[in-house]
């Protein structure tokens, strides 16, 4: 009974972690950007969905949250990342650190703005489907099942897009050899726009689902970035498969700890695992370099 409960809860939490992390890792793999405003973007999607659900219903709110995620992704790229990448004043070898700092500050600005307008109290998005269903004796909110299904649907769609479409294959190529791609006549700028759009959809979906499943507060923005970052490092920077594997490892480790040891020690074993992996296998579980 408890085992089944852990299996079900861990699955949903891990799916959500996975969805939150693969956008982050894809962005790094394709364009070399570590977006430290990631948590802020998730936060805005959730808050917009929460705010608008009253006026336009739960589905309308969720759609608005998704759109907000896409808008925030483009804002991050066009207002913060691209100006740094194009700047002539910043030496080329320092651009990565500038992008890191820029997105970190941008994330703090987003967090403070959300706190200013909607307080630091957590907000929870109205679930698309309320109620519970009993799976083999375990009372599970239907919203939790829906979260897992939607996460995997989004992940599946992303996989199809990347592996089965021409634009997706260009993305993949950009992550392997951007110079070669430009020699073939592809414009890197358009590929970057595409990857930020995909990132926006993934982050927006993750934000809305997270808001409905656990709730978010402006104070969580940093933690959300950190959790995506550690999952991605654990799985191997830039590796989508590695991130999914790491998301499930972290999700289940946390759930098992919370149920069998203590909820207040929830994150500790996963962090220890991260330290061990970084020490023994710095490229991450499925990393390439």
């Amino acid at each position: 009974m408890l085992g089944l409960q852990i299996l079900i809860d861990g699955f949903a939490v891990s799916a959500l972690y996975g969805l939150g992390a693969i956008g982050f890792t894809l962005l790094f793999g394709v364009s070399g950007v570590l977006n430290l405003a990631h948590g802020g973007i998730l936060l805005v999607s959730a808050v917009v969905a929460w705010l608008l659900a009253d006026q336009i219903g739960a589905y309308g709110g969720a759609a608005a949250g998704l759109l907000a995620g896409i808008a925030m992704a483009f804002a991050t790229y066009l207002l913060v990342v691209r100006p740094i990448q194009r700047s002539r004043a910043i030496p080329h070898e320092e651009k990565e650190i500038f992008v890191l700092t820029g997105t970190l500050l941008w994330g703090i600005m987003i967090q403070e703005a959300v706190a200013y307008f909607t307080t630091t109290s957590p907000h929870t998005v109205r679930p698309l489907i309320a109620g519970v269903s009993v799976i083999a004796g375990v009372r599970t909110p239907i919203n939790e099942i829906l979260t897992a299904v939607l996460c995997w649907a989004a992940i599946g769609l992303m996989w199809l897009l990347i592996n089965r479409t021409r634009a997706g294959k260009a993305l993949l190529a950009a992550s392997i050899n951007p110079r070669g791609l430009t020699l073939l006549g592809f414009e890197l700028q358009r590929i970057y726009l595409l990857v930020w759009a995909i990132y926006g959809v993934l982050a927006g979906t993750a934000g809305v689902l997270l808001g409905a499943f656990l709730g978010v507060s402006s104070e969580n923005a940093g933690t959300l970035t950190a959790s995506a970052f550690s999952i991605v490092v654990l799985g191997g920077l830039g590796s989508v498969g590695g991130s999914l594997l790491a998301a499930y490892l972290v999700g289940y480790l946390e759930t098992i700890t919370a149920y069998l040891i203590s909820p207040s020690l929830r994150t500790i074993p996963a962090l220890l695992l991260l330290v061990i992996v970084v020490y023994l296998r710095p490229q991450g579980l499925l990393g390439r370099r």
Binding site: S121, P122, H123, T124, P127, A130, G131, V132, R139, P141, N143, L214, G215, S217
Partner: peptide, 12 residues
């Protein structure tokens, strides 16, 4: 406050 209350209700 918000999160335990919402999860209490969602999980019935």
């Amino acid at each position: 406050g918000v999160q335990p209350t919402v999860q209490w209700a969602n999980q019935q």
